[in-house]
């Protein structure tokens, strides 16, 4: 974080190059690779998290000691991320009812709500691959 007197901002250039590369990689993973839907989703989400980290640490100076703000910015980002995870995963977990009913074998709810929530990803694994490209 001490490069603010250098003429060439190495850190920014590296960060920029990395984020372009990661974007292309994510696009290729989603549209060009032959991975299954679950793998695609997990890996591109991980790539997105890495990119967010690049922005935070290389561009936004989240842990800069000159700021005299200690760990608070980092702390807010971290807890924000935790909460984001709770919100998204929690909502999907809770709102996917209709699938969890294990009574009688009819499962007619499955049809009406097939696309809501994470379960849909698994349901449609097969066709997803073909329609992707």
């Amino acid at each position: 974080m001490t490069d603010h007197n250098k003429r060439i901002p190495t850190q920014h250039v590296i960060g920029f190059a990395l984020s372009i590369a990661l974007t292309l990689l994510a696009a290729w993973t989603a549209l060009g690779s032959n991975l299954s839907t679950m793998w695609i989703i997990s890996s591109i989400m991980i790539l997105a998290v890495i990119q967010a980290g690049i922005q935070l640490f290389m561009f936004m100076h989240v842990v800069e000691s000159d700021s005299h703000n200690g760990h608070v910015p980092w702390n807010m980002m971290f807890h924000g991320a935790v909460l984001a995870a709770i919100l998204v995963a929690g909502s999907l977990f809770v709102m996917s009812f209709g699938f969890t009913h294990d009574h009688d074998g009819e499962n007619h709810e499955q049809h009406e709500q097939q696309d809501s929530g994470d379960h849909s990803d698994m349901d449609m694994e097969g066709d997803g691959e073909h329609e992707g490209h």
Binding site: A26, A30, L31, I40, I41, I44, M45, L47, Q51, Q55
Partner: peptide, 13 residues
């Protein structure tokens, strides 16, 4: 980045 990933890419997959 997250919109790109979870809306567009996943939406296309």
């Amino acid at each position: 980045i997250f919109i790109f990933t979870s809306v567009y890419l996943i939406g296309m997959v």
